[in-house]
């Protein structure tokens, strides 16, 4: 176990360098700088421009800028937003719960729908259900997320009027931020109808964000399940006279879940990438929207710090996923006995 952690941690350092270097370099490749964008169309005198750049330290050589940045990061200082002047970490912490809320609901939706569908497709292998499900999931996997979001908005928000188009909760409600998770805060508040309002705001974005993971989980569950159903121990289970449901749901599923859990873990990255689009479309005040805006404003510290924090979260989640293997798979838990 100790070795396992050691190898995992040794991977963190190169990842950290890669992420910082990439974001640092890429954002500076984009034409324009924060000063120009703040000045807007009125323009700014070249002297004032240079003065402000110097104040932000943007006049130094790039390598020095990067070195300063890394030194600060190592000391836990991600810098302040150029636009709002608040520390990047504070902004991240305020906005992150919104993204977590959306992502957790999306992955729950994907799992609750995807696992049973995948299992069913495997059990009914070769049936019309199996073929159509695999076709649909391939479509879901290949569909551009913004297009899918717009279709759903058109149908459910515009034509049917079932769900709101944007935001986390209706403006009619004011909910005390306790946990910054809107569903929980709404539940805690006394305002009647706040919870259902929050929930109805969450449904469409969660479905949109969960679609790709849903397709991946359904396909992975099916193929993993098919493999397991051919194993000797499944024959043993049937030879015991167990009911088919018990054979599938207990003996097969437990084994089939092991690769599916890996895939779910890998979806965390997909979720954050998807969150950027989804949050922008649904005006969801989370990390995704924040990062997109930081690009538009050339808010270097926000973008650099935000991407770094997201990368850290993804690494932590993947580590946790690896640890859950042990729970599912006794051969890892007791390895080496």
């Amino acid at each position: 176990m100790f070795r396992f952690f050691l190898t995992r941690f040794s991977l963190i350092i190169p990842t950290f360098i890669g992420v910082t270097l990439l974001t640092f370099a890429l954002i500076r490749l984009v034409p324009g700088d924060p000063v120009e964008l703040m000045a807007g169309e009125r323009g700014i005198s070249p002297e004032r421009h240079a003065e402000l750049r110097a104040a932000m330290g943007l006049d130094k050589p790039l390598l020095v800028q990067y070195g300063d940045y890394i030194l600060n990061v190592v000391q836990g200082d991600l810098g302040n937003s150029v636009v709002t002047r608040t520390p990047v970490l504070d902004e991240f912490m305020t906005l992150f719960p919104a993204t977590i809320e959306l992502s957790v609901c999306a992955i729950l939706f994907a799992m609750i729908v995807g696992l049973p569908l995948g299992i069913l497709a495997a059990v009914k292998r070769g049936s019309i259900f199996d073929h159509s499900l695999m076709g649909i999931s391939l479509t879901g996997y290949s569909m551009p997320i913004f297009w899918w979001a717009l279709l759903l908005i058109l149908l459910f928000s515009v034509n049917l009027g079932w769900t709101p188009v944007s935001g986390r909760i209706s403006v009619m409600y004011w909910v005390e931020p306790v946990t910054n998770f809107m569903l929980i805060d709404a539940l805690l508040s006394d305002e009647e109808g706040a919870f259902s309002s929050a929930l109805s705001h969450l449904i469409l974005p969660a479905i949109v964000l969960g679609t790709v993971p849903l397709a991946v989980i359904a396909r992975m569950t099916r193929s993993s399940m098919l493999e397991v159903l051919g194993e000797d121990y499944i024959r043993t289970a049937r030879a015991k006279g167990l009911a088919p449901l018990r054979v599938v749901a207990q003996h097969a599923l437990r084994n089939a879940l092991i690769p599916v859990v890996t895939v779910i873990g890998l979806q965390v990255g997909v979720l954050f990438a998807g969150a950027i689009l989804t949050e922008t479309i649904f005006a969801w005040p989370g990390i995704g929207k924040w990062l997109i805006e930081s690009v538009a404003r050339r808010d270097y510290p926000v973008l650099q710090g935000g991407v770094l924090l997201v990368a850290a979260v993804i690494m932590i989640v993947n580590l946790l996923v690896d640890l859950t293997y042990g729970v599912l798979n006794p051969r890892i838990r007791h390895g080496g006995h």
Partner: peptide, 15 residues
């Protein structure tokens, strides 16, 4: 009841 050929794969590894 039945006993199979491969004892190592005939028992469920997860239980």
């Amino acid at each position: 009841a039945m006993v199979f050929q491969e004892p190592m794969t005939s028992l469920n590894p997860c239980f």
